[in-house]
Nucleic acid binder design. Structure first.
Lengths: 202, 202
DNA sequence: TGGGACATACCGACTGGTTAGTCTGCCCCT
DNA sequence: AGGGGCAGACTAACCAGTCGGTATGTCCCA
């Protein structure tokens, strides 16, 4: 329901207008912020007009919500994959923690928007997004708790706080990570996952 | 130059208008975001009119910049105090790391604004704020490096990344910390500083 | 084969409302 | 009597969303 109204375009043209609009909006939102980006700017940059945008999307906010949906679905799916793997819990947590870093860096525009503009959503959509985020948080927390119960992680720190601790660093990536910096996404991920696992050593 | 045009008010009235405006703006910016808060709202909530606001501040952006200046000065001063203390480096880092958490929670409105609205500043002011943040970052990094050189901290993770790691969690506080939650500011600070120090164990 | 009926995809001028900032002037203290 | 401190109406710009219109395509029945 939250997905784009099929671009149809029978034969298979160059680039569906709806997707071009979403990609353009994502870039502009990340660069200038949601409120600072006008609908006119988006359609100009995408080479269409408002008529096209409002043909595919119900509102400007729908564009934002669409970005959120994409990120959430992607991250949740990947987390589930790693958490369900057949490996010791410390390995599963390490893999999941590192993966979310890589995925975040690879979609840095989306995640910048995600964390900066969350509070721009209408109460209704905000509630939905929060619910999905909570599911994600809880899945991650379950990994930490499992390790604490089996004794491979230190138990004298609340699991919730540990999760927020790690996601703080993930959240923060958009602020400091530069593509032309000295570290590859995978290197950053390995370092951050390493720090987390060491912080959890009993 | 970046400070408020003296409220004068010779004798010492109830509450200087300039400070009331700044406090009101801070609250509203934190609640609704900078762009979503109109100047009219601010002056209404402060019980004055636009004439008063533009008498004391050059622009809406000046209000934001003023909030930034306050936070930056406060945090820098406190960091310097802890970093200069006469104690082993692991103790100084722990104290500094915990203190910034407590200070952040105690000024959660300011820091929410700080991290959310940074990119709303004009290039000129943005440059200035960045420079001050960098000084702060470097002071903190020096502590990590000192410990790495003297061997009390593991050296196989870049010091810059460690600093961003910790400040990620600080940055993130505004997202999850609730006053009516189970943890006091000091408890959160102790946990986060503990995690950092354990992550750095050789 | 042709043509009417209808739908999809998009255009772009327009509207109603909001906004930051200005300006003139009053009031009160010194 | 002069100026700081403020009021409040005003302006010029901008913005999300609307709406009537057009061009192109598809389906169906004769």
């Amino acid at each position: 329901m939250a997905s784009i109204k099929e671009g149809a375009s029978g034969g298979g043209a160059a680039k569906p207008v709806a997707q071009r609009l979403l990609a353009t909006a994502t870039r502009l939102f990340a660069e200038q912020g949601y409120d600072r980006t006008s609908v006119q700017e988006i359609v100009d940059a995408a080479g269409v007009t408002k008529g096209a945008l409002y043909h595919y999307f119900g509102s400007k906010e729908d564009l934002l919500h669409e970005v959120y949906g994409r990120v959430l679905r992607l991250q949740q799916e990947r987390l589930d994959r790693f958490a369900d793997a057949d490996a010791p819990v410390e390995q599963r947590l390490r893999d999941a923690a590192a993966d979310v870093v890589v995925t975040t860096i690879e979609n840095l525009d989306d995640t910048k928007i995600f964390f900066r503009s969350m509070h721009h959503l209408s109460p209704e959509k905000d509630k939905q997004v929060r619910a999905e985020r909570r599911r994600y948080h809880e899945r991650f927390r379950a990994l930490v708790e499992e390790g604490q119960h089996t004794g491979v992680f230190s138990a004298d720190v609340p699991a919730d706080l540990v999760v927020d601790y790690h996601f703080g660093s993930v959240h923060h990536l958009g602020t400091w990570y530069r593509e032309d910096g000295p570290l590859s996404p995978q290197q950053v991920a390995d370092h951050l996952a390493g720090l987390l696992l060491r912080a959890l050593r009993p």
